[in-house]
């Protein structure tokens, strides 16, 4: 009898484990979808030397498709503020033509989905390595993305920079002035 009892107990534990796994997978499905979308965006943005203008345009369009029709994109002093998919396509396409190589790596990310599962935020730190006129540069950007679910699809509504280290006002103005008068 003890062997029958232990086998029933084993089955019960197994069933509980499967149920727990299912519940966790269900709970994290939105996080997984957002994570996959982010990874796709990263791959689309990366560029190897010798990319054709047509491919650059196709990739820019595909990237813009991950955003809402009227997104709010403010990525700091180095990029203009953007408020539509079309503006995004133009900006991404221009960046791809300007830079010879782009390699973005998402170092850290924290995805938080709202209780009603209709919106989410992602705080991420991304490292970019760029090749411009044969010279390599590297920077780390901290960004907060806000997502909304439209027709079951997660789209980015806004992208704003986060600054763990806040530069003094003078430094911020110097950066902006430098960009205005390159």
């Amino acid at each position: 009898m003890p062997s029958r009892l232990s086998s029933r107990l084993g089955l019960a534990v197994l069933a509980a484990a499967v149920a727990l796994y299912g519940a966790l997978a269900w709970h994290h499905r939105d996080v997984s979808r957002i994570s996959r979308r982010l990874d796709r965006l990263r791959k689309l943005f990366n560029k190897e030397a010798g990319e054709s203008p047509l491919t650059a345009l196709r990739r820019a369009h595909e990237m813009a498709g991950a955003f809402t029709a009227s997104p709010e994109i403010r990525l700091g002093p180095y990029l203009p503020d953007l408020f539509s998919r079309q503006e995004l396509v133009v900006a991404v396409h221009r960046a791809r033509l300007l830079l010879e190589e782009i390699e973005v790596t998402i170092r850290d990310k924290l995805i938080t989905v709202s209780d009603d599962r209709q919106s989410a935020t992602t705080d991420l730190a991304a490292e970019g390595v760029y090749l411009y006129r044969g010279e390599q540069s590297r920077d780390i950007t901290e960004i907060r993305l806000t997502w909304v679910k439209e027709n079951g699809e997660w789209l980015i509504r806004s992208a704003v920079p986060l600054e763990t280290i806040q530069p003094p006002g003078k430094v911020r103005r110097m950066i902006q002035r430098g960009l205005a008068n390159p």
């Binding site: 170092r107 850290d108 924290l110």
Partner: peptide, 9 residues
């Protein structure tokens, strides 16, 4: 200093 989103960077 920790950045946003984790401690890998």
């Amino acid at each position: 200093i920790s950045m946003v989103g984790g401690r890998r960077t």
